[in-house]
Design a protein around this nucleic acid. Structure first.
Lengths: 160, 160
DNA sequence: TATACTCGGACACAATTAATCCGAGTAGCG
DNA sequence: CGCTACTCGGATTAATTGTGTCCGAGTATA
């Protein structure tokens, strides 16, 4: 099992968007991270579809965070980019084969699936406990406040 | 992100192997679950490579649990079948682009990766808290004790 | 000793992910 | 008011991973 690599890009983009309240084009975000501009667009579209960021079209358009960074959790981003479905899918294997459990006896989910989904819930709960604002703060304390400040001036300024 | 479907098969096989202390051939496990015998073999090989089950070759060979069901956790099975690597891979995106963080400043992992890995740890911890014996007990209470007992006689008996 | 049955790894196929391109739409400017 | 330049958005194509299958090596049995 490997998570889609686009999740990493999307998270970094959200953190960067924290530093700018004016629309930032996808091309600029791609150049900042040195990644494919066309593919990054796909992830940003997924974020826009989930209403985490808002797209502004036109000449000086781009993307802006829809909500405050404190109210955007990592779970929101993961669900938007990587899909909302559960990672473990139960194929109801107990209803097949010579010892198949009759369908009417399957009122509760299979114990195997229940345990796997409980673990997934723990994962989601941990993701929901961290917000984009938390990440931005961590970046500040790690790389120093001048890092995001410099990025902000680079984003708003026209220099490429 | 979707977990490999073989994990479900492997877990069910481990639960079934609880009911038999004599070697069970892969073909019989496949017939019991009504799945592809050839493909199930792949998953069982992965379990054998991780020393969760032991393979017995020869005429009346098959697979047996290596350890007691109480000491085999779901995490063991998931790691064996789905790979031990982390689901989130950090590509060190912070070291790229015009505002790249210098490599010598990257002593601690990227905050984004740290948060994602913390969530993964919560997931693994939940998986490690459940054992195959727990699942077998849940199956007993759900489907009644006669279910696993019937399977046991079917496994040891030659009828196919 | 021959045999029949087992596992084990090497070999094709399909689905998902990654990456790219071009068209639709809008804000700014003359 | 029309034009241009810049933006996003979805449809299209390559690469990787997961899925499924096959045949050969090895061993306990008779």
């Amino acid at each position: 099992m490997k998570m889609s690599g686009g999740v990493e890009w999307a998270l970094h983009c959200c953190v960067v968007l924290t530093a700018s309240n004016t629309p930032v084009p996808a091309a600029k975000l791609a150049e900042l991270h040195d990644v494919s501009s066309s593919y990054l667009a796909k992830q940003l579209q997924a974020l826009a579809r989930a209403d985490l960021i808002h797209s502004v079209q036109g000449k000086s358009g781009g993307y802006v965070l829809t909500r405050a960074p404190e109210s955007i959790t990592l779970l929101d981003v993961v669900r938007a980019v990587d899909g909302p479905g559960p990672t473990f899918v139960c194929t109801e294997i107990r209803q097949r084969g010579p010892f198949a459990t009759p369908a009417d006896a399957c009122t509760t989910p299979c114990p195997v699936a229940r345990a796997m989904w409980a673990a997934e819930d723990a994962w989601r709960q941990a993701l929901a406990a961290v917000t984009i604002a938390d990440l931005a703060r961590d970046v500040d304390t790690n790389s120093g406040p001048e890092a995001l400040a410099g990025i902000q001036t680079w984003l708003t300024g026209g220099a490429g």
